[in-house]
Design a protein around this nucleic acid. Sequence first.
RNA 1: GCCGGGAUAGCUCAGUUGGUAGAGCAGUGGACUGAAAAUCCACGUGUCCGCAGUUCAAUUCUGCGUCCCGGCA
Length: 308
Amino acid sequence: MTIPIIGIIGPTATGKTAVGIELAKMIGGEIISADSMAVYKGMDIGTAKPTIEEQAEVKFHLIDIIDPDEEFSAVIFRNIAYNIIDDLISKDKIPIVVGGTGLYIKALTGGYNIPEAKPNEKLRDKLSSLAKIHGNEFLLNKLKAIDPITANKLHCNDINRIIRAIEVFSVTGKPISYFHQTEGSSEFPYQIRLFGLSVSRETLYKRIEDRIDCQIKDGFIDEVKLLLENGYNKNIHSMKALGYKHIASFLSGECDFDTAIDLFKRDTRRFAKRQLTWFRGMSEIEWIDAENYSKNEMCEQIIKSIKN
RNA sequence: GCCGGGAUAGCUCAGUUGGUAGAGCAGUGGACUGAAAAUCCACGUGUCCGCAGUUCAAUUCUGCGUCCCGGCA
């Protein structure tokens, strides 16, 4: 019997990493992190990365691969992940994808046909200043002229997507909707089974708050301080991550400590809610009760399920 | 104990010259195709403290009660 690739997903603070490690040890796997923030070096406590000890137990891929000011994207993630999966399978190891970044999971498995149009900063700056001068509707109308299908789906304030759609057209000469329509042409070549860790909303929010309190105790503030000292200011994308931006505004005196922590917790709750929205739309996910079962029991459930 | 002020959404409060009510925050739902822990959209929630009176009609006016916050003792 061939064991499929396993995915462990779910909102933040549900224990995905712990289950992933346990499962990897039980079935002889290695972990591929699908987490847009764990890729950055030096961002450890705030991203709840596996500890050094945990990384010694099981091999983790796609964490600590770039500096906080380097470019990264869903496509880069997918390309690297593909290579690692191929490599693991050739070595008879089971790839276990663990992470909460819905777009990355979907980019990997969902047959997205993402256009090969690299970001063009100059064009982006030009378009966004155009929007500032003439208004967002102006930009949306510009898109309507070249790609009415996409323009009709987007709200005029959804400026990032409007700009991206115009960018794709200007680079490839084809509307972005053309690529969306041909979705599925790059089908994921392996079988993957996705397991979602599920916890009641109340418990989820409690766990988020507890985890943040622990992160502060574990020295998260010093971690942010060090990043700032190393020149990674809060304008770069990675520093807009949850916690990092909040602690950075506390350190710069923009708000007091309690406010920073309250906003950190609130924004993390909102993030977890958005993750839930994303995963609800993925009907292939098999949900596991992560509130009443131990990580061992969950692993047994996963193993039992993939054998059927 | 006395004198004021209050009691309205989960929280902070506004309001109704009497016709059962609305902001902010919290919360909820959705979107997402090379920034995604980012970004964008949409939406509620009510014994208006209790009881009685006046009135066609009381959350609104009157009386009593309860609780809270000031001040004086």
